[in-house]
Simulated assay, not measured.
Amino acid sequence: MADSHKNTIRFAERITSSASFKTLYSEGMGLVEETAGYLDGTGRVAAKALPRMASVLYAAESMRLTTRLMQMASWLLLQRAVNNGEMTHEQVIAEKTKVRLDGFACDKSAPGWDDLPEAFRDLVERSLRLQARVALLDKEIYQNNGNRKVPANPDNENSVKAQISLLQTAFGGN
């Protein structure tokens, strides 16, 4: 019975080298760039005009948004690295423990949510949808793949440091 798994085609693993993954990668990296541009430009100006409650919420949500996008970008970069032969599947699994694809949700019923700029709320919504797609793909590739289970991230005490390390690994920097 164990030998029958040797001939099994693992579709979930192959999806990261497909055209649909390339589209997801482009969408994810595009959203990162678009969000950075918004937060550094139009969003910065819009945030200054917000009422106090909305201003506090904007600051908190922009941190969640950038963290969410950084986590997804790290995951996408890892998948691209394995596809390009820059990292082995085992190296990706080891680095992937630093990536967190859950959490960073937002409370749309929070006081001030409706006062946030529409463009900002749109970026948050799009990032949440993208996060759900990436998390589903991650689950299909790593958690539903027989013996290839990836341990959950045991601690997120220093997730920024972990993300910097992950990005350095993906780009081959020091």
Rank of each mutant, 00 (worst) to 15 (best):
P111Y: 11
N144A: 14
G85C: 01
D122M: 10
I141K: 00
L116F: 06
A60K: 14
D155E: 13
A59Q: 13
R100P: 00
E118V: 07
N84Y: 14
C106F: 10
S55K: 08
S74L: 08
V45D: 14
R148V: 00
R126S: 06
R52I: 03
D122H: 07
K48N: 12
S62F: 02
L123S: 01
P151K: 09
L69S: 07
N83M: 14
G146T: 02
Q131I: 06
F120V: 02
P111Q: 11
A119L: 11
K108N: 08
L128P: 04
L78C: 03
S62I: 05
E118M: 09
V150M: 05
A132S: 12
G112P: 02
T97K: 07
R121I: 02
K139H: 15
V99W: 00
R121H: 06
A73G: 15
M87Q: 04
A105F: 11
A54H: 02
D155V: 10
L69W: 01
W113G: 02
V92S: 06
Q91I: 03
S55D: 09
M53K: 12
A119F: 04
I141L: 07
R129G: 07
M53I: 10
G85E: 05
Y58I: 04
P151A: 10
M70N: 13
L69C: 05
E61N: 14
N153K: 11
H89Y: 09
P117M: 01
A46S: 15
Y58T: 01
A94L: 08
M53Q: 09
L57R: 03
K149H: 14
V45Y: 12
M63A: 15
V56L: 08
Y58M: 11
N144M: 15
R64D: 13
L69A: 05
D102K: 13
T66N: 09
G146Q: 02
G112R: 03
E61Y: 13
K139R: 14
R68H: 06
L78M: 06
P111H: 09
N83C: 11
H89E: 13
A132T: 13
Q79I: 00
Q79N: 13
E61A: 09
C106W: 08
T88K: 01
Y58D: 04
A54L: 00
W113K: 04
W75D: 01
N147T: 14
D115L: 03
R126Y: 07
E61Q: 11
L123F: 00
Y142F: 15
A119C: 06
D115K: 10
A132Q: 13
N145D: 09
A81C: 11
K139C: 12
A110I: 06
N144W: 09
P111D: 10
V134F: 00
L101E: 00
K108V: 09
A81L: 05
E125V: 12
S109D: 07
V99C: 07
H89D: 13
M70I: 08
R100H: 09
V45Q: 15
D115Q: 08
T67W: 04
L101T: 03
G103L: 02
W75E: 02
K96M: 12
T66H: 01
S127G: 09
G112A: 03
M70A: 15
Y142N: 14
Q79V: 00
E125W: 11
K98C: 08
D115P: 02
Q131R: 15
E86R: 14
K98N: 12
D115W: 04
Y58L: 04
E118R: 10
L77Y: 10
V99Y: 03
R68C: 13
T67I: 05
K98G: 08
L128H: 06
P51G: 04
T66Y: 04
